[in-house]
Write a protein that binds this DNA or RNA. Structure first.
Lengths: 346, 346
DNA sequence: TTGTACGCGTTATCAA
DNA sequence: TTGATAACGCGTACAA
């Protein structure tokens, strides 16, 4: 087993000083051609690579980005990570991942763990619990310590930082308008409670679309699902809620669901009630994941372009990190959604 | 903006030496009650946290695990990551993620990047390209440098290290046996080319199951899909191949597919050919992801327990890292598969 | 052309 | 009880 070789060892072997080795390896012209060759040959032989940790300590930057997301087993978030990783790697950064598991405490702990020197900045999406408690002190503290944050998808106005979001409102409007123009007259929405900003915005988009088409919103058409943190055990509860939405609106002919799972559940319930899709009822979801694509019938959705969100977030963060002037001008980038029409709509 | 405070700054403020501060904070009883209190109060006020990078440099360990996987937008791999993260965090480790994107070069580059001090050890699943080229020098070199590796799922015998695998062969046998006992007599298999070890083993399991039940394997029933790295653009090709499998075996009444996508494609083709599932043809997949669960009809699958694989891999790695004696006794842990029966089988 | 000294932030050892 | 010093690995300003 040959341990990693250091400058010191090379210096000792070749009987020169450490700094000579260092300079020779960095092709400094201070060093004679002769020794440079000698050093480089030796270094190559022993496969010398500078130690990242030492460099980090010296340069006071780690070239590493910390990602905090609520959940990784999730098509959208993994796409975002892929986007981040893509850009980060291209620009010489690594990516370290922390999961909050939708818990406030885990979010805080994870951030503290990483903030102590391990990373140069954060890209994160806020956990539901944090949104609920509205306690954002860990974000402000991090930013105050000079560590930049880029938030995506689930963001809050209270924090002043770069943000990458989807035009949730517009996306929802697009979806609902599509349903209307395809002939739907009684459109239900399956959404989340309002503390999830994206849910709120999508609900608002739904309402605005109705309004623009002079349709009156009815309370009975709006289902705000009681949140069980989307735990897998609560599919049954969700199904019951959706079923009651269908039952109290016998003439339902369109559904806008704010995520894939809700949309799929709607399909399931529709099937159970012997409604044909899209003949009797049309359905549109939000977030274009594998489920929508492979569902039968395949699901029309509003695609969020998760990967692009990740790429943009990484760009913003790295630009900020590498900016010379310390101006704190924060941007909010809006990624356009796209309506992907499939078989669940006419 | 209050920058992160260091020992040096505290020392200066309180007009004591750095080492006194360090000791005081670590509750050394060398330090008088008085100064200890003073220092601790000050540190608390300024929210002092030791710098991870400095600690890493000093201790020559980073308390960070490097994960290299071929693809993150993948239910199985993200489950594994979750498992790793869970155990790692519990034991005070962070997790840094690199994606090979199924490419040999990216795998090598990513590993080199991380191996230079950023992490203490690797958990990885080999990229397809690497498996194809059978070039494993980067693994051996890493191990030779004293950096432990734990491989999962896609492993190779050539490398001597800890491994966590699924009983692919047994899992496949279980699945095919189930099909047989449910009355199937002409069971096709949709699998990968043999260089993917898991595909090979699952194919073998299929053959052994047939043999045990005195059924003769027929070449026409075996479809080894031409690999397009599962790129999303090649779904059509896949579908065509599956279709020809169906067409050249008119009496097909069972399908064992070695992954979710293949299974779903089989369902799609079956539907196209007006075969009822499970009445006319029964289907079992491998890897229990969201697709199987939410498919219609829902898909019977062999679950791999991705999270458990991740947990076990993390345990193996950390145990190795924290082991006092330097004995290199490598383990191969086999995680049991489980047949999850759903609607696609009788 | 080469080497010395210093600093990044921390801890451990030893001296005062 | 406290402090100075060395070390982890590197790069660089400055001295020789």
């Amino acid at each position: 087993m040959k341990r990693k070789v250091t400058l010191k060892q090379i210096a000792k072997e070749l009987d020169v000083s450490i700094s000579t080795v260092s300079k020779a390896l960095r092709n400094s012209k201070e060093i004679s051609e002769d020794t440079r060759q000698k050093v480089q040959a030796f270094a190559k032989l022993y496969n010398y690579r500078p130690n990242n940790i030492a460099l980090s300590l010296k340069n006071r930057k780690t070239k590493t980005i910390g990602i905090i997301i609520p959940e990784i087993v999730h098509h959208f978030f993994s796409k975002v990570i892929r986007g981040i990783e893509l850009v980060a790697n291209k620009r010489g950064y690594n990516v370290i991942v922390g999961l909050s598991n939708e818990s406030f405490d885990k979010e805080v702990i994870n951030m503290e763990m990483l903030a102590n020197g391990s990373i140069d900045g954060f890209i994160l999406s806020i956990s539901k619990e944090t949104l609920q408690q509205q306690d954002y002190h860990h974000f402000t503290e991090t930013i105050n310590q000079g560590m930049p944050i880029v938030m995506f998808d689930r963001v809050v106005d209270a924090i002043n930082c770069d943000k990458v979001i989807v035009d949730d409102l517009e996306g929802a409007k697009k979806a609902v308008s599509k349903l209307i123009s395809s002939g739907c007259e009684n459109i239900g929405i399956i959404t989340t409670r309002d503390y999830v900003s994206v849910g709120k915005l999508r609900t608002q988009g739904y309402l605005e679309a109705l309004e623009e088409h002079k349709m009156n919103p009815k309370a009975s058409l709006i289902l705000k699902v009681v949140d069980q943190l989307l735990s897998e055990d609560h599919l049954d509860l969700l199904e019951k809620e959706v079923e009651s939405l269908f039952k109290r609106n016998k003439n339902l002919d369109g559904i806008f669901a704010v995520n894939e799972l809700y949309a799929l559940t709607a399909m399931k319930v529709a099937r159970k009630m012997h409604l044909r899709i899209p003949e009797d009822i049309q359905i549109i979801g939000f977030t274009d994941g594998v489920l929508s694509k492979h569902a039968v019938p395949s699901l029309t959705t509003v695609s969020q372009h998760g990967q692009k969100i990740g790429e943009k977030a990484a760009e913003l963060l790295i630009n900020n990190l590498e900016r010379e002037d310390e101006e704190d001008i924060y941007e909010t980038v809006i990624i356009e959604t796209e309506l992907i029409e499939r078989e669940s709509t006419k």
